[in-house]
C-alpha cells in the first residue's frame, strides 16, 4: 500500500521530492499525519470511544457508583424504554421543544435580519442590543429568566398583573413550563439566526434591487424574486443547525425547570441526565442517549436528502 502524499499544488511538491534525498521523501509522506494525527487521536479517545462505550453501556445495568462494573442485560433497557409512556412523553417533549424553538427563532431571527438590513438611524445600536443575548452565558440566562418568571416576586407577574391576570407559576405550572423554556431559548439563540441571515442579505448585490425596481416590482415581488432566493440556502442551513442544537440543548431546560413541571419539559437530554445522576442508572441513561443520537442523525439525513432534492430541482 502506498501512502501517496503531496502538497496541494503538485508542481512544487514534485520538484521538492525529486531534489530531496530519500529520507526527506519519507518525511514528506508521513508529515501530514504528524499534523492531523494529534487531533484525530484526541477525538477518537474523547469522542469515538465514549460513543462506543455509551452504546455498550446501554446493554448493561450499571450503577453510577461503579461505572465500570455493569452486568449485561441484553436489550432490556431498550425494550423497557420503548414500552414506557415516560419515554414517549420525553420524546414528545423533545419534538415539541425543538419545533417551537426552531420556528420562533428562525422566524424572529430572519425577520429581524430583514428589518436590520434597511438603513435607519441608530441601526448599529439596535443590532448590538438584539445581538447581546447570544453572548450571555447560559447559566446567567437561566438566572435572569428564573427571576423574571418567579411566581411571587417576578416582574412578568407584575406586568400581567397590570393586565388583570392573576399570578401565574410560569415555571411550576404544567400549562406554562414548556412555553417559558421555549421563550428563554428563543431569546438566547435568535440573534445567531439574525446575524447569519443578515450577513447573507448584505451579500445581495444592490444592482439586483435596482433592476427589479426599474421593472416596477413592488416590495413583496422584490422579496420573492430577489431576496428570498438569495437567502433561502442560508435559512435552510441555519434551520438545520438550530434543530440539531435544540435537540441537544440541556442547560436552559435543566436549570429553569429541571424537566418539570410534571415532566412536561423532560426532553431526552434532560432525561439522560436525570436517569444517570438522579436515578443512578447509567445503563438506561445510555440507552436514552443512544436513541437521542438516532434522532439527531435522522434530522441530519432528512436535511441532506431535502438539499439533494432541491439541488436536483434547480439543475
Amino acid at each position: 500500500m502506498s501512502l501517496r502524499t503531496s502538497i496541494s499544488p503538485p508542481a512544487v511538491a514534485q520538484n521538492q521530492i525529486q531534489d530531496a534525498p530519500s529520507r526527506h521523501h519519507m518525511w514528506q509522506r508521513i508529515s501530514p499525519y504528524i499534523y492531523i494525527g494529534p487531533a484525530v487521536i484526541y477525538l477518537i479517545i474523547f469522542m469515538i470511544i465514549p460513543v462506543v462505550q455509551g452504546i455498550q453501556l446501554s446493554f448493561t445495568k450499571t450503577p453510577l457508583v461503579r461505572p465500570d462494573g455493569g452486568t449485561g442485560v441484553g436489550l432490556e433497557n431498550y425494550s423497557r424504554l420503548l414500552s414506557s409512556p415516560q419515554f414517549y412523553n420525553s420524546l414528545g417533549a423533545t419534538i415539541l421543544y425543538t419545533a417551537a424553538t426552531v420556528i420562533f427563532a428562525v422566524a424572529i431571527g430572519a425577520g429581524s435580519a430583514l428589518l436590520l438590513n434597511q438603513a435607519f438611524k441608530g441601526r448599529t445600536i439596535v443590532r448590538a442590543i438584539i445581538t447581546f443575548p447570544w453572548a450571555v452565558p447560559t447559566v446567567a440566562t437561566a438566572l435572569i429568566f428564573s427571576w423574571i418568571f418567579n411566581r411571587s416576586d417576578g416582574v412578568l407577574n407584575e406586568v400581567v398583573g397590570v393586565l388583570g391576570v392573576g399570578q401565574q407559576g410560569w415555571l411550576v405550572d404544567p400549562k406554562f413550563g414548556m412555553a417559558a423554556v421555549v421563550l428563554t431559548s428563543v431569546w438566547k439563540v435568535m440573534p445567531l439566526v439574525m446575524l447569519v441571515v443578515l450577513a447573507s442579505l448584505q451579500s445581495i448585490p444592490s444592482e439586483l434591487y435596482e433592476a427589479t425596481r426599474m421593472d416596477g416590482a413592488g416590495a413583496l415581488e422584490t422579496f420573492k424574486a430577489v431576496t428570498w432566493p438569495h437567502i433561502a440556502p442560508t435559512v435552510r442551513v441555519v434551520t438545520l443547525l438550530m434543530t440539531i442544537w435544540s435537540i441537544r440543548r440541556f442547560e436552559i431546560i435543566y436549570l429553569l425547570t429541571g424537566g418539570g413541571p410534571v415532566d412536561t419539559t423532560n426532553t431526552l437530554v434532560v432525561n439522560v441526565y436525570r436517569q444517570a445522576f438522579s436515578n443512578q442508572e447509567l445503563g438506561r441513561a445510555a440507552a436514552i442517549g443512544a436513541l437521542g443520537l438516532v434522532l439527531s442523525l435522522l434530522v441530519t439525513v432528512v436535511y441532506f436528502m431535502m438539499e439533494r432534492r432541491n439541488a436536483a430541482k434547480e439543475a
Binding site: 501512502l3 501517496r4 502524499t5 503531496s6 502538497i7 496541494s8 508529515s31 501530514p32 499525519y33 499534523y35 492531523i36 487531533a39 484525530v40 477525538l43 477518537i44 474523547f46 469522542m47 469515538i48 470511544i49 465514549p50 460513543v51 462505550q53 455509551g54 453501556l57 440539531i244 435537540i247 441537544r248 440541556f250 437530554v269 434532560v270 439522560v272 441526565y273 444517570a276 447509567l282 441513561a285 445510555a286 442517549g289 443512544a290 437521542g292 443520537l293 439527531s296 442523525l297 441530519t300
Partner: peptide, 29 residues
C-alpha cells in the same frame, strides 16, 4: 495544504463529532 490517504475520513470525523450532543456523551465520558 496536504493531500493524503484518509483525509476524507479525518474531515468526516471532525465534522461528525460536532453533531454529538454533550449530554449524551457525558455519561460515558
Amino acid at each position: 495544504r496536504f493531500k493524503f490517504h484518509g483525509k476524507g475520513a479525518a474531515g468526516f470525523l471532525l465534522f461528525a463529532t460536532q453533531m454529538l450532543p454533550e449530554a449524551l456523551l457525558v455519561v460515558p465520558i
